[in-house]
Write a protein that binds this DNA or RNA. Structure first.
Lengths: 208, 208, 208, 208
DNA sequence: TATGAATGAGCCTTCATTCAT
DNA sequence: GATGAATGAAGGCTCATTCAT
């Protein structure tokens, strides 16, 4: 069996085991067995548990970013791009729950090397959204323009909301909502606020 | 030294170690040493690593829920309650980063027993928000009432956004925003959308 | 069982196993079993295979140097001191063949950390002999005094001869010579030459 | 590439790796790579790690014995033969430090199969010297002839001294002495004693 | 109450060795 | 003749956990 195929099988198995068990409890034995190969072969191809995990993270992260990018037509208006991007995001995370679990639940909690890698990927998503928000704001008749870190904060909140929604929806066993439904929920939740900011309307606590 | 005090020291140490190392890499040796007690004593009081972790999760989760509840005056209007609750949430998570890390980063990633417990706690927060949203919707002249799962989805998204914002803000080393600023960002982000829903206005994709 | 006792048992077992098998093939399992303890206990007390080996080397080396030093009366003349030192050396190496094997055969061949340690110990012996030779030379009516490196070379040769004799004698199964016999052989072999040097007589190849 | 050449390359590589790493840490991978061949080929030609090591030992040992034999003219007097043999020995060990390291440092420390083989080779050298000593003794007007084991002991001591001197000289980084200088040091050290024995003069401890 | 002493079990990793081509 | 692909076996090390005192 050619190396390329074997390697993909190994990564598939690893993603699955890492997602289900977590990094530490995942044993190389289990991964190798699930991949249908012997442990030394796994080491021959992927060198160590750490590198194996890294490879999983990179693969899943790249796939996610690509899925979101591919879902968006860069020439459509901001609202549409957000809507398409979210659908792409939810569709991909729903289709690859293990990969998503590795990124969202495991990689962020296990030491510098992985956390940094995942943070970098997450940042790509946040950047996409940040640009989108900034651009939306610029389009509008915005009185006071958004400060950079304000846009970042909003983007983080939006991505966080999406992540939470993805996690929650994936975890549901009873009639999980479709990717489109998830995206609609989030647009309902977030778009009005963004639009307000676009027009310079900020929320402020009512003076008692 | 009275048992109560010792036990709290142990939990303090455990929360710290679990937060910094993660569940598996955290060793009972390190926890015992940090707590200034011998290992058998830790076992005498807390039975096992699993139960110790559970106890940490319960304690931190209860503290967080209490902090949010205490920040809210149940007689104030919904908007105010959300604003106050968020400030309480952000203030507490900023003040207890280790506890928050245990809840948010560690507990959810480690197998059935803990994940369920954490999920249960998170659900308390989500429930608070769900009620708040549902009630808000009921107050308004809402044409079509929110379906239950729709409110849940929104609440999850809101809590997710708050969690993401908390994590992101805690991680910032340069001038992290204050709890109030965090809360304002989130209100800006979320309140307009909730208000729209209150009034029966839903977002829908533009028909091209 | 008190720690001190256990630790000595472990070192005894380790010396034996290292001597018989060599450093790498020696397994911690075998050492632990021979010591009558479990493997984790060996690690608790001695940290790692490397440190365990180091501890063996140090203990055996110190014992050997002490045995030689104790055998010699510093106030006796050089000839006597050499004779006594050699007897002490052969007696000790014959009484502790495993320790001697660890020093002579194993430690020198296994990487920097050990080799350096053993080299240091061997140097102590060589130094003793070097001083003795230099002093002998000084006493005599020596025409041309010995250069420093010449004395070192001689001392190394003498120690090497002793080591070889120890190894060879220990390996003999048929009537191995006593320590005194070994020492006499070496004195026969070496003393005349040293005495010659003392008196400025050097060997030179016959001009053909 | 003809088998003979390949095989020599493999042995060259093996000697180098065994000398630098030691028997166990030396990996067949490294040897194969250094030899510029694939691992299965190494196995095809040399069957196993053990046999490969044996082959190295045999080759290096034969070369050393041959070097010593070739350096000696069997018709010259004993003194001259010893002098020539030593020069041959030191010249060869200095010219082939890896081979010498395999013989002296590695082979003796690794279990029955190798140790025996090396011991056999060493015995060849010792035998040469033993004969030489015995013959020297016979030539002289020796009162009491040397007992066989006495000659063996002396020969072992002499070879040991030579080995130690070779190791020490090879290890020196500052102006290592030439082979001739090494040989002279050893003759200075040993010849007078042998000559004495030749003439029936034995060393004996001074009666106090 | 409190602890020094001790261990069974398991995991990552490596290596000599062999097929199928 | 030569090799990419593959593995059984074993070793170092760590950890949660428990007695005996």
């Amino acid at each position: 069996m050619p190396r390329e195929v074997r390697e993909r099988q190994m990564l598939d198995a690893a993603v699955q085991v890492f997602a289900r068990r977590g990094y530490r409890p995942a044993s190389m034995d289990e991964i190798a067995e699930l991949a249908g190969a012997s442990k030394p072969l796994v080491y021959l191809y992927l060198n160590s548990k750490e590198e194996l995990f890294s490879a999983c993270v990179r693969r899943e992260a790249d796939a996610l970013v690509r899925a979101v990018r591919d879902a968006v037509d860069p020439d459509s208006p901001a609202e549409r791009r957000l809507w398409d991007g979210l659908r792409g995001f939810f569709a991909h995370t729903a289709a690859h729950p293990d990969g998503w679990a590795v990124l969202h639940c495991q990689a962020r909690t296990h030491g510098e090397p992985f956390a940094l890698e995942v943070a970098a990927v997450r940042q790509k998503l946040v950047d996409i959204v940040t640009h989108l928000i900034a651009e939306t704001a610029a389009e509008g008749s915005c009185g006071a323009p958004l400060a950079g870190h304000e846009a970042s904060g909003l983007a983080n909140a939006l991505v966080g909301a999406a992540e939470a929604l993805a996690g929650w929806s994936n975890a549901r066993t009873d009639e999980a909502p479709s990717a489109t439904e998830r995206a609609r929920t989030l647009m309902n939740f977030a778009w009005a606020g963004l639009e307000n900011l676009t027009n310079g309307r900020r929320w402020a606590p009512a003076r008692p």
